[in-house]
Design a protein around this nucleic acid. Sequence first.
DNA 1: AACTTGTGCAACCGCTTCCAA
DNA 2: ATTGGAAGCGGTTGCACAAGT
Length: 401
Amino acid sequence: MGRHSCCYKQKLRKGLWSPEEDEKLLNYITKHGHGCWSSVPKLAGLQRCGKSCRLRWINYLRPDLKRGAFSQQEENMIIELHAVLGNRWSQIAAQLPGRTDNEIKNLWNSCLKKKLRQRGIDPNTHKPLSEVENDKDMPPSTDKSNQKASVGSNEVSLVDQPPKQMPSSERYPLEVSTSSTQELFLDRFGTTCHDNNTCRPSDVVGSYFSFQQLNYGTTNMSLSANTNTSLCFLPPSTSSDLNKSTITSSMLHSVFPTHVKLQSNNNPSISSDGVQNWEANNRNKNNGSMQLQSGTNFLDNTWGISESMKVNINKDAQIPLQAEQEDLKWSEYLNNPFILGNTTQSQIQTSQSIYTEVKPETDFITDESCASWNHHPPAFQLSDIYSKDLQRFSVTYGQTL
DNA sequence: AACTTGTGCAACCGCTTCCAA
DNA sequence: ATTGGAAGCGGTTGCACAAGT
């Protein structure tokens, strides 16, 4: 545990990477792929531990990284994703092509939290600060609303509590009331159902942003299926549940009813049996792709999602059932950027539409020859990477690149 | 100009999870 | 089922720089 085993074997360099080290690492991975990280430093001729090499690659040298400031859309997206995912930076980063978890984490801690507070929003609860303040004054109670309040009182402090330390049921309050004839209790990450059916993330993630929006108070959620369903989101009971049930990396694509459109009328699939039947029926109908149909402006009006989120919705996209997809890991992505298949294509489409001001990822991805570029990575120049940091390096290392 | 304080960010640390033996 | 190495993740630290005094 703890320090990487390779760190014990020899005296290894620490601290900032020099341009020479970067070049060695870049050249090595460009030619050979990273393979086993622990062997990279030795093979690349670096006095670093594999862990450090991995980090340097992922956070800095990777050719598909975006450079430069975050766009407003990206910031909005991070805020909204944070409202749903908490400090799961890697999962947030998975939704922002070209951005790293470290980068997003730094942005959040240094900038976005501040901005939210300035806007009167508590960055932890994503609730209005005034509400949190009010909650703070309320005495503890067994009443659910007051439980939320007590949480809020902790959140007011500038010392941020990690989300995992907070009862999720309180952190993600969702009270969607309809004239309910049935209740579906869904895990926040869809691990369990009230009716003992097992719900997977794809079953329920479509509701995440709706209740996040409820927190912002911008919309009322009305799931207008004729079943008059009320939804209650329960937290994963344990941290391990939480881990097991983490949203897939392509969450947004499964989140929104692009391939999962709620049929607002006469949908026999949404039955009193709950989500699982609904999914099964739709899978049968759609050959593995779930398709529900939204009512008019369901996404735009009812769900109240913001522009930055809307762009992830491609109503025409046919996306395989997300619940059957594993989390997208960068390592997998590096090994085979095409592993995502349709989902990736969709993601690329939408990300391009989002980030029109930044260079598309396709110069990295579209070349078929790069399908497994862990072994045959694309060529790129260190100078491309360094453009942002010339000044820093010239100061740090007393040289100009 | 010298010093102090604040900020952003790269990198590290410690832990968990995964997986093959 | 157990174990140990590797990978991954999130929190934290430390440094460089900018801004303020």
